[in-house]
Design a protein around this nucleic acid. Structure first.
Lengths: 249, 249
DNA sequence: CCGTAAATTTATCGACCGATAAATTAGCAG
DNA sequence: CTGCTAATTTATCGGTCGATAAATTTACGG
């Protein structure tokens, strides 16, 4: 990995609102845009186009969606690959909220509550068609930034989950063992797959995302309590015990 | 969904072994093959080529890998799309072992044992680079057979898991509630993501796959026991309780 | 209103794509 | 050895791709 990435390194462009429609912009009289605005338009439309059709989608179709001609792209990006890299950065680096780091480690709140809050917010940020499809397309392409992101998930989220769980359970602190990390991946992958089913397979999923997350956290935390041989107050309420998971019908 | 698919509908071709190398076959003197053998070669090489580069990979590169010329493809398949459909069928329909259905429902064995056996065998069948990549590529393309397969997973595996769990736990039998199915998806998606991490992201995973599955099942079954308010003998052993999950270092 | 810098378009190149038609050649039957 | 059938190749078409160069037009400063 010879490239360096940094979460939230790109300031969300606060440029004038742009036409997001699929058809060429006929209403706007503004025929020329500032370089910054035009560049922004290219990146945004490229993100949704590549999300739908993959990175093999043509530059002519991209230009057509913007209502401009294809060679204009090359005034703003040296090559299509450079445009793709900009899309990567926008998708991968722009979603992480810095406060999540502090929040996951806030030991004044129970881990159950922190995890529910985190995964509610995190999945709000990444469970959309563009993000998940770009993520998978870039993963299949073997993009360096994808592998980097996976390592970030492991260190910023999963290692944290295990550490915080061990702390709350009164277990001795140490770097998470591979098998412990693997269990955290089970939770994370299971939740992520909810988004894949919804946005890639267009498959019906449990409507209330937060309920799916809540039940997942119940099973995970109760499960590792049993497996680790520890008891931690993890359920949000106790009354549900007799009636099964929330929302079962 | 206007197409009909059927698991295991294609007999595994028992044709003479073929050269699987990437370079054109120079050693073999046999310049002409039987139509069945040639067709088989096309499908096999197309599977690995499409798995690596996606379905946009060129027919000329495919022919080059087989040591033949590109137009020959069109003696065996009317179009590239027809070839892709054959690859789909081979990948999706050819892996399911009919005995898995009976095995999952065999109530003479505890559910814990059945699930371990099933997921060991199922992941042996699908956790390879070709299968997982073709699966994701076809999912991203919105292929009908992918959506069909997802529904098959739900009815043949996940519904079964909930039903069998409820039976073993002495809970009243009924069709799995959406929230219960969602929990089964958490397990299934979590396990599947192990394969994605290993074969798509080339990310390090817990080496012993069966251990990852065993721990996942422990957490899942113990977890839903607590959440459902039932106690079922799920752990394979009890001694582990004090030392955390297997293989933790 | 004019002039100029730059945003955008027109025209085009060479490479590659899926697909078709016609020529060729391997291999088997007699 | 010959001749026929069919597997395979050669040649090629129209279309699209990413990219470049040159011409054109917009918008702004004076």
């Amino acid at each position: 990995m010879d490239e360096e990435f940094k979460l939230n390194s790109i300031a969300a462009a606060d440029l004038p609102a742009i036409d997001d429609g699929a058809e060429p912009d006929t209403s706007s009289k503004q025929r020329r845009l500032s370089p910054a605005q035009r560049r922004e338009d290219f990146i945004r439309k490229a993100t949704s186009l590549f999300a739908e059709e993959g990175f093999d989608a043509g530059t002519r179709e991209l230009a057509r969606k913007l209502g401009v001609t294809q060679p204009l792209l090359y005034r703003y990006f040296p090559s299509k690959d450079d445009l793709i890299r900009e899309v990567y950065k926008r998708v991968y680096l722009d979603r992480w909220q810095p406060e999540w780091d502090d929040m996951l480690g806030d030991r004044t709140r129970p881990i159950r509550e922190r995890l529910q809050h985190f995964y509610d917010a995190y999945t709000d940020a990444i469970f959309n068609r563009d993000w998940i499809r770009i993520y998978l397309f870039s993963g299949l392409k073997g993009a360096a930034i994808n592998k980097w992101y996976v390592s970030i998930v492991e260190t910023r989220i999963l290692t944290r989950i295990i550490e915080e769980y061990r702390h709350e359970a009164g277990l001795p602190a140490h770097d998470p063992a591979p098998a412990e990390l693997e269990l955290a991946w089970l939770l994370h992958g299971g939740i992520f797959y909810y988004g894949v089913r919804k946005h890639i397979y267009d498959s019906p999923v449990l409507e209330q995302k937060n309920r799916a997350i809540s039940n997942a956290l119940d099973v995970f935390l109760e499960g590792i309590s049993s497996v680790f041989g520890t008891a931690v107050k993890t359920r949000s309420t106790a009354i549900r015990k007799a009636q099964g998971p929330d929302g079962q019908d």
